[in-house]
Amino acid sequence: MAQSAVAEERAVPRPAPLSIPVRDIVPWAVFAAVLGLVLIYFVGAEQGATSLLSGTWVHEFTHDGRHLLGFPCH
């Protein structure tokens, strides 16, 4: 009886590890990098010398984030 239990354990198939091809990751990595750069721009530079939007609402919305990331704003 003990031999049949050992044989059953050996017969159980193990799932193969998943592999994700690099070509599937690259578009998401580029998207994340562009999104990160846009966020850094809005937190660090918007409402300054290179302002794209008028008003101060972007500055007020990202004010605490600027100080948290070390960007001086005033």
Rank of each mutant, 00 (worst) to 15 (best):
L53P: 04
F71Q: 03
G65C: 08
A33R: 00
L68T: 05
T56G: 15
R10I: 13
R10D: 14
F31N: 10
G65H: 14
A5W: 07
V30Q: 01
S54E: 00
G70F: 12
H63C: 05
T62S: 05
H67R: 09
V6C: 07
R14Y: 11
I25Y: 06
W57R: 12
P17Y: 03
G55I: 11
H67P: 00
L18A: 11
P21A: 07
H59P: 04
P17T: 07
A29C: 02
A49D: 13
P17N: 03
H74A: 14
W57S: 10
G70M: 06
P15G: 07
V22A: 08
S19I: 11
E9Y: 13
V22I: 12
P72R: 14
A11V: 00
L35E: 11
A49F: 14
G36S: 08
A7E: 15
G48H: 08
L69Q: 05
D64R: 14
E60Y: 02
S54W: 02
G48K: 08
D64K: 14
G36P: 13
V30H: 07
L39I: 01
S51V: 03
I20P: 11
Q3C: 00
H74Y: 09
F71S: 06
G55P: 07
V30D: 07
V43W: 06
S51W: 03
G44N: 01
I20S: 03
H74I: 13
R66E: 01
V58Y: 13
A29E: 04
L69Y: 11
G48N: 09
T62G: 05
A11H: 12
A33S: 08
G48D: 03
T50Y: 15
A49I: 02
L18N: 09
A29H: 07
H59R: 09
S54Q: 01
R14C: 09
M1A: 04
A29N: 04
G55A: 12
T50W: 15
L18G: 02
F61R: 02
T56K: 15
W28E: 12
M1T: 02
V58L: 02
L53E: 03
L68D: 01
H67A: 08
F71C: 08
C73Q: 07
R23C: 04
G65P: 00
F61H: 00
L52W: 10
V58D: 00
S19W: 10
V38M: 10
P15N: 06
G55W: 12
V26E: 05
G36W: 06
Q47G: 12
R23P: 01
V34W: 06
G44A: 05
F61W: 14
Y41M: 05
F61T: 08
L37C: 15
T62I: 04
R23K: 06
